[in-house]
């Protein structure tokens, strides 16, 4: 009898333990699922908003394309057809650029982009990028200067770093009026480096300073004056975050805008995340 009771107790214990374990697991699972769901909703909402913007940004060139092709088809002029096809190709290239930028942005923001960190000679890279952009700046009657502390090295991805500054310079060349000055300053601040790209242009109004890093944000609401899709600064921010850096915009002592990027000298190791863990990280 005693043996049977002990056996029954053991059985109950095992079943009870199993049930408890199952309950705890499923509660954790449910909580995890709820968290994932709420994050997925946020991602979906943000991508829906982005989708609306993409639709808007692609509809405009599509309208132009359609009108252009229909116009050409009403005539038999070979020269006119050729000119139309060349414009069509340009429009396709523009749309392709928007789509590529959005894909890159999506990958960077969700964290599925591989970051290849190595020791990078930051001072050298910045000098090289300035050298790459100086002739284009001079062509636009702009002065591009660097004030870079020597021997700055950081653990980072060289291509991502270069893309950050190329995008910032592209932005400066587009918005700083002829005769203006663009200055890049880089210096070490403890375990971080601070790089400022600033100018004596019209600057960015206080109320716009957070918004300019959002997708499709442009100071010019008609989106026609400056060209570009308004994705460059979103890319800058996403790349900076991939490198555990931060970027903000402030007023420059030169009178225009100052983009201030801080990056860790030696960043924590970030490996490629699976889309699922990337969602959990959001």
């Amino acid at each position: 009898m005693l043996l049977i009771e002990i056996f029954e107790l053991l059985l109950l214990g095992v079943i009870g333990g199993g049930v408890f374990f199952w309950w705890r697991q499923s509660r954790a699972h449910r909580q995890n699922e709820a968290l994932l769901n709420s994050k997925l909703v946020a991602v979906t909402q943000s991508s829906r908003q982005t989708g609306d913007n993409i639709a808007h940004d692609l509809r405009t060139p599509l309208t132009r394309l359609r009108a252009d092709v229909e116009g050409a088809l009403r005539h038999d002029d070979v020269e006119m057809h050729r000119a139309t096809l060349e414009r069509v190709l340009d429009e396709i290239q523009n749309m392709q650029n928007i789509i590529n930028a959005l894909l890159t942005l999506g990958q960077a923001e969700v964290g599925v982009m591989n970051v290849r960190k190595k020791t990078v000679n930051l001072s050298g890279l910045l000098e090289e990028l300035i050298e790459l952009y100086i002739p284009s700046a001079e062509d636009r009657s702009l002065t591009l200067q660097g004030n870079i502390a020597p021997d700055l090295t950081i653990e980072a991805d060289r291509q991502l770093l270069a893309r950050i500054f190329a995008n910032l310079f592209d932005n400066e060349l587009k918005y700083v009026p002829a005769g203006g000055t663009i200055l890049l300053t880089a210096l070490a601040r403890g375990k971080r480096v601070e790089i400022r790209v600033e100018d004596d242009g019209p600057g960015i109004p206080v109320e716009m300073r957070d918004k300019i890093f959002e997708r499709f944000a442009r100071l010019d609401p008609s989106r026609t004056l400056s060209g570009g899709a308004g994705l460059g600064l979103s890319l800058v921010k996403a790349f900076a975050q991939l490198l555990q850096g931060e970027i903000c915009v402030a007023e420059s002592s030169l009178g225009g805008a100052a983009f201030i990027l801080t990056l860790p000298v030696s960043a924590a190791k970030v490996s490629k995340l699976s889309p699922k863990s990337a969602v959990a990280r959001l």
């Binding site: 790459l132 002739p135 284009s136 291509q159 893309r163 190329a166 995008n167 592209d170 060349l173 460059g232």
Partner: peptide
């Protein structure tokens, strides 16, 4: 230049 992206400017 060893850059694997295309800048927007005609550098």
């Amino acid at each position: 230049w060893e850059y694997f992206f295309d800048p927007q400017t005609n550098v």
